[in-house]
């Protein structure tokens, strides 16, 4: 069995690892830190036609079933959010939106700015009813900390029964393993429960966790907390890599690899006084005035060495690749599509 190395633990990494595994490769995925995926809203703005079925299969999960279509949700400050795929409690079908929402936030906690959201929702013609969830969580603590046991959810359910709206908007407060609590909450409080669209919190982490577990289920070996510190490249083919973690480093031999290390925000690319740079110092990088668009140069997703050779068995995927069209807020979709193309390019070996 051929062995592939996937560098990067975000959407592009997990999806390409999963795809490779499905196609019979032995896959080791190496990653560290928190990927942009975990900082995202956990929703896909659109679904690329080319791999719609694969993405649907990849993200299909009993733990957190996704919904697709023209969807709309409310952000934690009340602004509208449109997307094509989301967890079931994040959005409604476009056109089926509520006329009034109870905005249920934690007092003084940034997980849902209930007064701002109410003001903005009212300004958009949706009647908003502010409601403070009982209990206090320090602003730096994730709200998930206080909503881990049945008792806390019972208290919440009882409180929400006191609202007059049929729909309640709550902060993002559940991990992947507890996602179905939201279904139970709906039953207990008799209201439709909507989770506020929030970046930098639980929904993004859930999506990353879901992708990780799907990859692990498929048999991908996941080396977390580790970093590829060197690549063994001979002319235009890579043969192996050095992986370091803690006080140990190991050399591994691989037959192919996908670099899905992410943007400068997550340390995937260096951003120093010379602009965007390749941390491996081996591959060509497209610099752009807009760092969002800069990244590895590629030919059909295959990376190019500094002396212009197209790598035979090393592809790039996701935010670390240069892109002419990447926008803030649509990175996830592009990353998944890019991962699919990277695997196809590798398979074209």
């Amino acid at each position: 069995m051929s062995r592939a190395l996937v560098v990067g633990n975000g959407a592009a990494g997990y999806f390409s690892a999963w795809l490779l595994r499905k196609r019979g490769w032995e896959v080791i995925l190496v990653g560290r830190g928190t990927p942009s995926t975990a900082l995202s809203t956990g929703c896909l703005r659109s679904l690329p036609d080319i791999c719609r079925a694969e993405i649907s299969e990849f993200l299909d999960s009993e733990a957190m079933p996704p919904v697709t279509g023209r969807r709309e949700g409310v952000s934690k400050i009340g602004t509208p959010f449109q997307c094509w795929m989301s967890p079931s409690h994040s959005t409604w079908e476009e056109g089926e939106g509520p006329k009034s929402i109870a905005v249920a936030g934690l007092e003084g906690h940034p997980s849902l700015h209930l007064h701002t959201a109410s003001a903005i929702l009212n300004g958009r013609g949706i009647k908003a009813e502010p409601f403070t969830i009982p209990g206090s969580v320090p602003p730096d603590a994730p709200p998930t900390s206080s909503f881990r046991n049945d008792e806390a959810w019972e208290v919440l359910a009882e409180g929400l029964k006191g609202t007059s709206s049929e729909v309640v908007l709550i902060p993002a407060m559940v991990h992947l393993r507890d996602y179905r609590r939201l279904d139970r909450l709906e039953v207990r409080c008799g209201r439709k429960v909507l989770e506020a669209i929030s970046p930098l919190s639980a929904p993004g982490q859930r999506l990353a966790d879901l992708m990780c577990s799907r990859a692990a289920e498929a048999g991908v070996t996941i080396w977390d907390g580790r970093k590829v510190t060197a690549l063994d490249v001979q002319v235009d083919a890579m043969r192996g890599a050095t992986v370091a973690g803690g006080m140990e480093a190991r050399d591994i031999k691989v037959d192919a690899a996908i670099v899905a290390t992410g943007s400068p925000v997550v340390d995937g690319l260096d951003l120093n006084e010379r602009g965007i740079c390749d941390p491996f110092s081996r591959f060509l990088v497209v610099r752009s005035n807009d760092p969002l668009r800069g990244g590895y140069d590629s030919s059909n997703n295959m990376l190019l060495t500094i002396d212009g050779r197209v790598m035979k068995n090393l592809a790039g995927a996701g935010d670390c690749l240069a892109s002419k069209k990447r926008q803030y807020g649509s990175g996830l979709t592009e990353s998944l599509e890019s991962a699919y193309l990277a695997v196809r390019a590798l398979e074209g070996l």
Partner: peptide, 27 residues
Amino acid sequence: CVKCGSCLRACPVLNDPSGTQFPGPRT
């Protein structure tokens, strides 16, 4: 630091109801 808050979400103390007095790894 880019204030992503990942450290806060990873901290087992902050994620425990008894850990509310810990200022957190970022502070």
